[in-house]
Amino acid sequence: MNSVFVDAFRCEWLKRRRSLGAWLVAVGAFFTPAIITVVRLIRHATLPQLYADPLFWTLHWRNAWESMAIFFVPMAAILATSLVVQIEVRNNAWKQVHALPLHTATIFFAKFAVILLMLAQFFVLFVLGIYLSALLPALLVGGVAFPPAPPLRVFLADTALYYLDCLPIVAAQYLLSLRFNNFLVPIGIGFLAWIAALSALSWQYANLVPYAYTMLDFLKDNPDARRAVVSSGMHALAAAWSVLFVAAGYVGFATKAQKG
């Protein structure tokens, strides 16, 4: 990797220190596992039966991902992306960034890479949170069997696909955040796009909606879900949308008449 890009990336990574986006990643990732833990501690009478179930990890995993795939992952992608870009706008710093001896592509992709890494951090912390939310009730409530070792490989593969599924949202939000200085515009459009995707889940072409993939991915194994048939190429479509949005975002960024 180009050493200039590494320096630019390290510079961008430092900017997110103590920022709202960095806090969102940490707090957001542990929110659902914390709720699950609290609910289980409140309903501790049902725990022995739950923890004795041979499908404990499958149930626990799906339980944890339900709110994440439908709500928290799209929201985290929308908010984290907008917040990272907003660091430059709020501090009136784009003009300094563009006056640095860096190519436009380096500036664009270094920041995008930081957003991607933050999101990866979000997913890793969430998986860690899922694991802890399974262990803590067993440790704190007496008479509950300790869960067996989790099927890590399956979990990691699932997580990687969810990560891929949310990339179109990240790329689209990056494009919007770079285009509009007003923080509310990308957040508002992102929120509306998420509602539209939610409404489109039962549409036969739902797999063409860029904000719908994490939801479709979660619902694909749920026979009761109100959703249309999902094509097997869903992840490829997510990747294609991501590439398209990143390319459009870069063209818009590079050809801006006024930089900062």
Binding site: D7, C11, L14, R17, A99, G260
Partner: peptide, 30 residues
Amino acid sequence: LRQVGSLIETPSLYEHLTAAENLALLQRIH
């Protein structure tokens, strides 16, 4: 731009970072 330093209108500072961190960002690039 490697040999140019600039200050245009108001200073571009990251208010959530310390003075030293603000300079550390640029120190890495330069």
